[in-house]
Design a protein around this nucleic acid. Structure first.
Lengths: 113, 113
DNA sequence: TCCGTTGTTCTAAAAATATCGAACAATGCG
DNA sequence: CGCATTGTTCGATATTTTTAGAACAACGGA
């Protein structure tokens, strides 16, 4: 398969990383990768069609968030945790660790703001 | 001046916050706010015209990143640090603390990835 | 009251993104 | 080889986002 471009660590840009992570599908991908080793694209059972998922993987790769490696007909994805931690310490942890609850839950008292 | 809507803490969404922070101008605003108290919109000497800046402040406010308060003819902005830290621990620190250098600097040895 | 300052809203246009079907490429198996 | 599997690329469309000028609103000072 064709060579896949991965930006070197020192070229990662925070704005691009944040943009890559600001999509629900991509955020979901990153969180799954955070708790497992290399996963093939096909193992992410999103409802989106393949071409859409392929697009999202590409965005993540070009932003430097994931590493993609072909093996057979599969494409295995891993988080570039070392590079991300080196460039943006604490960012990945903060994003992966996030509380699962969203709007509607009352886990946090609504203080005056 | 008109009431400005601020989403309550429990309604903040990570994807929206990340998107708000993924723009260079907005990221710059947030970083300035992180190291100072309330700043009026006009104190951010970006080259962009007022209407563009106003748009960016609105994006930050609606994502729950900043609090805006009118005073006289000025509009003072503050980071919603407490809410952000409560909902997304470590995120703000990671984003504000980021290394200043960008592509081209050799502060990090490029390891194999 | 007249004016300058500060910032928002409206509007339009441009640019960037997202979505997804169809065609294609690479691989491996029988 | 024939074929299914896995994923990419292309092309078109739709949606979102960004930018910015112009008009407007609120406020304060002279």
């Amino acid at each position: 398969m064709r060579e896949l471009h991965h930006p070197p660590r020192e070229c990662l840009e925070l704005t691009q990383v944040l943009h890559a992570l600001s999509d629900p599908i991509r955020l979901c991908i990153v969180r799954q990768l955070a708790v497992s080793e290399a996963l093939a694209c096909g193992t992410f059972c999103e409802t989106a069609p393949k071409s859409t998922m392929s697009h999202h993987f590409k965005v993540l790769r070009l932003a430097g968030v994931i590493q993609q490696r072909s093996e057979g007909t599969s494409c295995f994805n891993t988080l570039r945790r070392c590079d991300l931690d080196a460039r943006f310490p604490g960012l990945l942890d903060a994003i992966v660790r996030e509380n699962v609850a969203t709007c509607g839950d009352s886990l946090w008292e609504t203080e005056e703001q």
